Simulated scan of single mutants.
Amino acid sequence: MDKILRVASENGVVIFSKTTCCLSYAVNVLFHELRVDPVVYEIDQDPEGREMEKALLRMRCNSPAVPAVFISGKLVGSTNEVMSLHLSGSLIPLLKPYQSQVYHSS
């Protein structure tokens, strides 16, 4: 849990993901379209990944562990929460400090 909170607090926008998670990929694509370059932390590539996944499950009340999206060090939620915020117009104000004026997609 400490590692999750440290990574989330040291970076503006973080997506905790697994390399095979298509929903994490979809959230990442959305953020790129909104000119935000999130840190994508692949927990299945970390030796402590299983512990991180358990901690994310506890934080999210047994919702799927990934994607877990943090903005400004705060847990926003998963794909459903991010998309709901986006559709309601509440996501962009949260992301504004992290948007690039000139964004080059790769």
Rank of each mutant, 00 (worst) to 15 (best):
M1E: 08
K3P: 05
I4N: 07
I4V: 10
I4T: 08
L5Y: 07
R6W: 03
G12T: 05
G12S: 00
G12C: 05
V13S: 00
V13G: 01
V14Q: 08
I15T: 07
I15A: 05
K18L: 00
K18I: 00
T20W: 09
T20V: 04
T20G: 00
C21I: 03
C22H: 12
L23A: 08
Y25V: 13
V27H: 11
N28H: 12
L30V: 02
L30N: 01
F31M: 12
V36G: 13
V36W: 09
D37T: 13
P38F: 05
V40E: 07
E42I: 12
D44R: 05
R50M: 06
E53G: 11
A55E: 15
A55V: 14
L56R: 14
L57Y: 11
R58K: 12
R58M: 03
R58P: 00
M59F: 10
R60P: 12
N62Y: 14
S63N: 15
A65H: 14
V66K: 09
P67I: 00
P67N: 10
A68D: 14
V69A: 14
V69G: 13
F70W: 11
S72M: 04
L75F: 09
E81T: 01
M83R: 06
L85C: 06
L87V: 13
L91Q: 13
P93A: 00
L94V: 08
K96I: 03
Y98I: 03
Y98P: 08
Q99K: 10
Q99I: 01
Q99F: 02
S100W: 08
Y103A: 02
H104G: 07
H104F: 07
S106I: 06
